[in-house]
Simulated scan of single mutants.
Amino acid sequence: MSETEPLRATDAVQAGEAARRYYLAGESKVEIAAAMGVSRFKVARLLEAARAAGIVRIEVVDRGGVDAELSRRLREAFGLRRCVVVDCPDDAPRLRTHVGSAGADVLLDVLGPDDVLGLPWARTVSALLEALPALPPVPVVQLSGSMVIPGEHSPVDMVRAAAALSGHDASVFYAPFILDDAASAAALRRQPAVAAAMAEAGRVTVAVLSIGAWVPGHSTIHDAVDDAVRADVTRAGAVGEALGVFVDADGRAVHPELVDRMVTIDAEQLRRIPERVALATGAPKASAVHAFLRGGWATALVTDRSLATALARRAGA
């Protein structure tokens, strides 16, 4: 019986019986050999022949709205530890919900009882928290100040909600994300309550971040500042931001004047966090997300199919 030759009728019957017993009934090769009166080596050859002849066809089907193949390609192309690409409609609220839900799964996979979780403010991160059923008993640390957006949770709310799920401590501080000038921001960062809370960022082992593109409608920070500030950030070479860390097209951190006006962790602090789970939605963010991945700012990525396709095209994957 050769895989390159057509099966004889008797072999085809035996191969079909062996395949049904093995793949459908779940019998072992030893059990099949005993039932059919042949050796287990003959059973192995019958199963190989059944696949070669098309009697058995094995198909891997993606379920749960995840594109497994595209996830693998991006993971390998960018050296990520984890990558999940969700397949869902391209409207912003639903994208955030689906990516947030998948992000919750990734976070639960990454997070262990000895970790410290760090959270910023971001709408996609809020969607992740809403999808979490529970968390391991880990401390939760606030990584950035607040932006007042009607109908949205503040980072204090988000950190406390996560701490309620973990049943552990919450390190929070009350401060705006962006101040009017660098001196005011520096003074606020020196306040004992804020300084003590932000010092906890050094303990964080797992952080969640949301990547924004430096274009209208795709970065909350971009939309919150005036045209002069936007132009200054653009002149610095920034194509995207996450947690107030700005990067250029090559993934290098840049330092526009706006950075000095923010109350958040800095680029080096973000780099030192061992696990960084990045969330991003929408193909218009392709340049920004590509830059963050090129720069090694994320160890895991959760995104949607349209953005993932654009990233794969840029990476030649």
Score class of each variant (00 low, 15 high):
residue 134 A to V: 09
residue 44 A to Q: 13
residue 136 P to A: 15
residue 291 A to S: 14
residue 8 R to M: 06
residue 12 A to S: 14
residue 102 A to R: 12
residue 249 A to V: 14
residue 293 L to V: 08
residue 219 S to H: 00
residue 61 V to S: 03
residue 129 L to Y: 08
residue 35 A to W: 05
residue 47 L to Y: 07
residue 289 V to L: 09
residue 71 S to P: 10
residue 189 R to I: 10
residue 276 R to V: 03
residue 285 K to C: 02
residue 273 I to H: 01
residue 300 A to N: 09
residue 141 V to Q: 00
residue 58 I to R: 15
residue 229 V to S: 13
residue 277 V to H: 10
residue 201 A to L: 02
residue 116 V to F: 01
residue 276 R to Y: 02
residue 77 A to Q: 04
residue 300 A to T: 09
residue 226 D to W: 06
residue 229 V to Q: 13
residue 214 W to H: 12
residue 134 A to G: 10
residue 214 W to T: 10
residue 307 L to H: 06
residue 246 F to W: 09
residue 68 A to T: 13
residue 148 V to C: 01
residue 27 E to K: 12
residue 300 A to E: 15
residue 103 G to V: 10
residue 215 V to C: 06
residue 254 V to F: 06
residue 275 E to S: 15
residue 109 D to W: 08
residue 88 C to P: 00
residue 71 S to Y: 07
residue 204 V to Q: 00
residue 217 G to D: 01
residue 131 A to E: 10
residue 252 R to I: 01
residue 155 P to A: 06
residue 219 S to D: 11
residue 235 R to K: 14
residue 97 T to W: 05
residue 164 A to K: 04
residue 122 A to H: 11
residue 155 P to L: 13
residue 232 D to H: 08
residue 43 V to R: 04
residue 60 V to N: 07
residue 39 S to C: 03
residue 180 D to C: 08
residue 247 V to Q: 04
residue 131 A to W: 05
residue 313 R to F: 00
residue 286 A to R: 14
residue 92 A to M: 08
residue 43 V to Q: 10
residue 154 S to V: 01
residue 30 V to C: 00
residue 37 G to I: 09
residue 38 V to R: 12
residue 61 V to R: 14
residue 189 R to F: 11
residue 74 L to E: 02
residue 256 P to E: 09
residue 212 G to Y: 03
residue 59 E to F: 05
